[in-house]
Amino acid sequence: MLIAKKKALSTLSLLLLPFTLLLAQQDTDFMRSMGKMYVVVAVILAIFIGIIIYLIRLDRKLTKLEDQIKNHE
């Protein structure tokens, strides 16, 4: 249980890492070029990544339930 949680957390942070690095190190000149279009790109990317992380969590929950059903049989 604890190991699964730790695993989930590390996956989360691993997934988030490149994204946060990308945003943090992106110099503002790039983000503000092309009329700040890349800000819109970053916002849509953030929503997409958020939903994917949520989906991974849900997937793990369902896997756990499937395991429980298997153990019952």
Binding site: T28, M31, V39, V43, A46, G50, Y54
Partner: peptide, 18 residues
């Protein structure tokens, strides 16, 4: 809560550049 967190993150990104 998911939508709220996404709203806060997207707001922060938008705020950084405005």
């Amino acid at each position: 809560l998911l939508l709220g967190i996404l709203g806060l993150i997207t707001g922060a990104i938008w705020a950084k550049n405005t």
